[in-house]
Design a protein around this nucleic acid. Structure first.
Lengths: 338, 338
DNA sequence: AGACAGTGTGATAACGTTGACAGTTTTATG
DNA sequence: CATAAAACTGTCAACGTTATCACACTGTCT
């Protein structure tokens, strides 16, 4: 079973392979009559070009990768939706490349990408923050665009939000409601945004002259389960906080679940706020107060940056996307203030 | 900037290109000494094979596609997780191919796949059920494995659950709780499982001698929003049902949200059950009673079937995966029965 | 000793497409 | 009308790898 090639099409249309190539790639200098004949021949033979032969000779694969290691399914979904959104109508295909642990395998990632022969990659956290990966990509001359890096911002095109300010704002809000006994559930320590958000919280605490007690800071991993476990720890201890700041929505929803297990009502007994505005924050009850990170838009923008580079257009080096405090029903003044 | 090729490696190691190829592909008939030399030369030059040249000559791309058009993010996540799980450690890469509307674009899908030159595809609903796509894949000799088809089961390897039985069981359960006034939120009419689940509900109603009133059947699209809208319609009407059967979890959670808007408590005022056991069913409060469809396992199995075909191994033609009724807290006897 | 199976190695020709260049015709220009 | 410019078309050699075949050598079995 031989594939039909461009030569077959040429034979049927009575022209050279090169001419067929020109027609199929919409190159100029082909007479309308020939164009028509070639098109018909191609249709008749149900011809589809061999992308490998093209990729080989053009040195371009029309495939881009999305690299992530993200414990939050809703985050990953948004990410991918954004990339695919920008890719509709383009000839690029998306190859998804989840990494088990960027921290542990940073050295191997780029080698893998090289064999995959992608035209470029979109880096999501924490790969977008990893200096080893960034440097190796540069050495291997693989183009990239980044989502939510917090370091080395100018090393490659970046899509940011101001994590510190966003975290500070939601902490300000919670403090503004009257809370003083506030617990924090941290994100995955290998993600740089964890520190950034922590810093934002700290600034808000400092401004309000609230002491940040270490035992009120629980480790988490950005997963629902880690939020659930952290909040169980928090509630199991004697001095229950009146509010919980979770560093993403998954953990916040986990914390809400834990509160229910302890018979606590939200927001009356304990306020819970998240971070991201992922889909799940809208489907819980009460709906989660959170701060929106426009992941979908950031993914679109990153993909745009990548495509711009691939096509040799000018590239915006950095976009800081707006965040937004979304006040919903999961946080309220502490009961003592009624 | 020239790429380093197999010839360069050969030159450095003092052997022919073919010998390098043999070493790199672990073919026999190479002396240990040469093997060693070639390996060192390849390392020294940081050589990575060009996958396109390989694909061209081997007629094999080592890429597989995942085709879906699925409105439920959590379903898609599970699907992808399963495929990627089976692919870890394999040399295959995953290309994701979301289709806007399989119904409308069935004729174009396979052409697209052909140009993408994938070795095979995993078909998720509703593409797994589409006869046009299946036939064209067959004609184009693109291998495939299917997830949750309901028709033409023997046309290609399939991973099923018994949708009818599963739907009947959860309806039986709700009826068993004492409900008689039951509304149904249907799924996307272009997905064949919608009819299958409907049939299961119908059987349960018939067995219990409950009339299935048409005005109690609301259309939906498997999305949270469609479930929300459908349930609003249901609650806005005079004769409120005591239970709602939603054909997936997304819509069930939407219905729970609608109930809250109407000040109804779950399960006291109204019971809600879903279908799938997607992640969201565990994070709501009360947790959603549903019937588990092992999407993750089905995706792993489908990928295994595809790989087996690609490697010429024997392929299981059909696996019926177990479903399981998961009784949680979102359904209870109707208030009238206490 | 001769035949024979295997092992190790290289030369050459694909795989299907496009880039570079050259040749031929048509059209525009002075 | 001559001539330059543009439009059209074809030839040939890449692109980087592997398949196929050929050859030389090493044992092993009659």
């Amino acid at each position: 079973m031989k594939r039909t090639t461009i030569v077959d099409v040429g034979r049927l249309a009575g022209v050279s392979a090169k001419t067929v190539s020109r027609v199929l790639n919409d190159e100029p200098h082909v007479s309308p009559a020939v164009k028509q004949r070639v098109r018909e021949a191609a249709d008749a033979l149900d011809y589809h070009p061999n992308v490998f032969a093209q990729a080989l000779v053009r040195r371009k694969s029309n495939m881009i990768g999305l690299i992530y290691e993200n414990p939050s399914p809703s985050y990953v979904v948004e990410l991918q939706r954004g990339v695919l959104e920008r890719l509709t109508g383009e000839r690029y295909k998306l190859v998804v490349i989840p990494i088990r642990s960027v921290q542990d395998h940073a050295g191997e990632v780029v080698g893998m990408l090289r064999s995959a022969a992608l035209d470029g990659v979109v880096l999501a956290p924490p790969a977008s923050d990893n200096p080893i990966i960034l440097n190796q990509l540069k050495d291997a001359r693989i183009l990239c665009a980044r989502i939510a890096p917090t370091r080395l911002i100018d090393m490659a095109p970046s899509n940011l939000i101001d994590d510190v300010a966003a975290a500070r704002e939601i902490a300000d809000y919670v403090i503004g409601l009257g809370h003083r006994e506030i617990a924090i559930i941290r994100g995955d320590p290998t993600h740089a945004s964890t520190e950034a958000r922590m810093l934002g919280y700290t600034q808000a605490f400092y401004k309000a002259d609230i002491e940040l007690r270490l035992e009120r800071i629980e480790p988490g991993l950005f997963t629902f389960d880690s939020g659930l476990a952290a909040a169980r720890d928090i509630f199991a201890r004697g001095d229950r906080p009146t509010a919980i700041l979770a560093q993403n929505d998954d953990m916040a929803v986990g914390a809400m679940m834990a509160a229910r297990e302890f018979g606590l009502s939200i927001p009356d007994d304990v306020s819970v706020v998240g971070f991201d505005d992922s889909e799940m924050s809208r489907i819980t009850w009460p709906r989660l107060t959170t701060v929106r990170q426009p992941v979908f838009e950031m993914a679109i923008a990153a993909t745009e940056m990548l495509i711009a580079q691939l096509e040799g257009r000018d590239v915006t080096a950095r976009i800081t996307h707006p965040h937004e405090l979304l006040i919903r029903e999961s946080a309220a003044p502490p009961r003592s203030l009624g």
